[in-house]
């Protein structure tokens, strides 16, 4: 039997399909044979967290590094608060933090016009890593930086995260 879950505050009905789209500043959690996808990551960061035991997975698409630095009350928009929310939601769905592993992709430097300091893409990845570390969730793979966009596909059955780009070969983390 397939079990579908839906998680984000926007509470969109996802029952009945085996492909769930994750928009910008959103996350989705699912288990069973489901594919979670998100597209058009530039400096945005995609965070995939997977519990091997329960085969429950979540995918988050964040735009900015830290909630404290910007306006906005949507936790899923920021790397730090978004990961926190995603971990909570996974736990509510029966996943165990001690079984969780993570993969991140995105955070490119493309079109970063800031002249000094590191760009948003870099900081997204950095805050993402740091927050995962605070939760003791090991980072199993990453495909970040560079100057190209990415789209992601996370399979809940295996935890495989496939990264696609416009002008290059796909990689699976």
């Amino acid at each position: 039997m397939k079990v579908y879950d839906e998680s984000s505050e926007d509470s969109e009905t996802t029952t009945g399909s085996d492909r769930i789209k994750v928009g910008i500043a959103e996350y989705q959690v699912a288990s069973g044979e489901v594919v979670l996808t998100t597209s058009g990551l530039g400096s945005c960061l995609g965070v995939a967290i997977y519990d091997r035991e329960t085969k429950t997975a979540g995918l988050l698409h964040v735009m900015l590094p830290s909630k404290a630095e910007s306006d906005g009350d949507n936790d899923a928009k920021f790397a730090d608060s978004g990961i926190r929310e995603l971990v909570d939601e996974l736990e509510r769905e029966g996943a165990d933090r001690s079984n969780m592993v993570a993969k991140i992709a995105g955070g490119s430097d493309m079109l970063d016009f800031s002249e000094n300091g590191s760009g948003i893409g870099d900081r997204n990845a950095e805050v993402g890593r740091r927050t995962l570390d605070q939760f003791d969730i090991p980072l199993e793979g990453e495909d970040v930086g560079g100057e190209h966009g990415r789209s992601l596909r996370l399979e809940t059955a295996t935890g495989d995260l496939t990264v696609k780009s416009a002008n290059r070969e796909s990689v699976t983390l």
Binding site: I24, C44, M110, A166
Partner: peptide
């Protein structure tokens, strides 16, 4: 730029 449309706009929206 030569990339997926949304990925081009994304870093600008973030900035």
């Amino acid at each position: 730029v030569h990339d997926m449309g949304r990925a081009i706009v994304d870093p600008l929206a973030a900035q």
